[in-house]
């Protein structure tokens, strides 16, 4: 699911990053053919270029238009179904909810801010532990073929398992909802961290290692100046995949475990039949997930050496 999301995102950026000239090129020969005059075509092309708004204005317009269309479709669906609240009703509820996101009335009734933060905290802890285990393990598996061959069947077998299938084991082990949810995040974040780090280590160019060999650099120097920086982009990809999956999974896990958290809140509002709040939760989850992704893309850009 995540890889699909990433493929989609890449496709989007690909379209976005097409230079304006590449877009206008196919039109130019057509113009020339129909007008049968190169000069005419050139003039038409200049006029077209002058009339075009700056790239970022067109982008923002497109984004806004997309959102408007989405809201319109939502309004239509809402008015047909009758049970789904429309944009206006949700907007009013959202203004109300976000005017006091950090209220606290007992353990099961807290503001949306607290719910989001406690979900993020679980993701942070679970992911952090997965990174602590997964990155060193990835380095070891990437370095020693025998160990990676040993690990291959285990990873292949466990990786396709839905993280939620681990929840009962977590409840059994920890006898409490919160650590069980963190443990599920740990499990689902672990595989991308291990696999991406290991692949990164295996793909360190031999040229770089030859430089180290010729200079007879110490093991520590090789690790800090060559291995680690070379593997870093792969690790960031692992982090991106992990966090993406973790944010998907935490909502589901919290629906099952209860407590405080955005997933639990969705379930709670369903029990209260407050569908407008569920829609607010969905939009909030999407926004937070998008922000996480953007932050990690920024991080990845900072450490790519293409």
């Amino acid at each position: 699911m995540t890889s699909l999301a990433i493929a989609n995102r890449d496709a989007l950026t690909l379209v976005n990053s097409l230079p304006p000239r590449a877009v206008s090129h196919p039109a130019a020969p057509a113009l020339a053919a129909s007008a049968a005059s190169a000069e005419h075509a050139a003039r038409a092309a200049t006029r077209q270029r002058r009339a075009r708004a700056p790239e970022w204005v067109r982008e923002i317009t497109a984004y806004a238009l997309g959102l408007v269309i989405f809201v319109l479709i939502w309004a239509v669906v809402a008015s047909i179904s009758g049970s789904i609240p429309g944009p206006a009703k949700v907007w009013v509820a959202a203004v109300n909810i976000f005017s006091d996101p950090f209220y606290q009335k007992g353990p099961n009734d807290q503001g949306i801010g607290w719910n989001v933060l406690s979900s993020l905290k679980r993701v942070g802890i679970g992911f952090g532990m997965a990174a602590l285990v997964g990155i060193p393990l990835g380095f070891i598996l990437g370095r020693f073929k025998f160990l990676s061959d040993m690990a291959a069947p285990i990873i292949s077998l466990l990786r396709p398992v839905s993280p939620l299938a681990w929840l009962p084991i977590g409840l059994l082990l920890f006898k409490a909802a919160n650590p069980a949810a963190i443990y599920v995040i740990f499990i689902c974040s672990l595989w991308p961290m291990i696999i991406n780090t290991a692949v990164g280590v295996q793909q360190v160019p031999q040229d770089y290692l030859n430089v180290a060999r010729v200079l007879k650099l110490s093991e520590w120097k090789v690790f800090t100046t060559i291995l680690f920086p070379a593997v870093l982009p792969f690790m960031i990809t692992g982090i991106r995949l992990s966090i993406g999956v973790a944010w998907l999974v935490i909502v589901a896990a919290e629906m099952l475990t209860g407590g405080v958290g955005i997933g639990f809140w969705v379930w709670d509002e369903w029990n209260n039949l407050k569908v407008d709040h569920i829609i607010i939760a969905i939009i909030t989850i999407g926004t937070v997930g998008w922000l996480l992704e953007q932050a990690l893309v920024l991080l990845a850009k900072k450490f790519s050496y293409a």
Partner: peptide, 28 residues
Amino acid sequence: GPGPDRGVVFQNHSLLPWLSCFENVYLA
């Protein structure tokens, strides 16, 4: 075995991309 008494210039430069020119030379 290899050693720094021999300076090697590789066919495809083999500079470490995360280091500046200065840092690449300084490493050696």
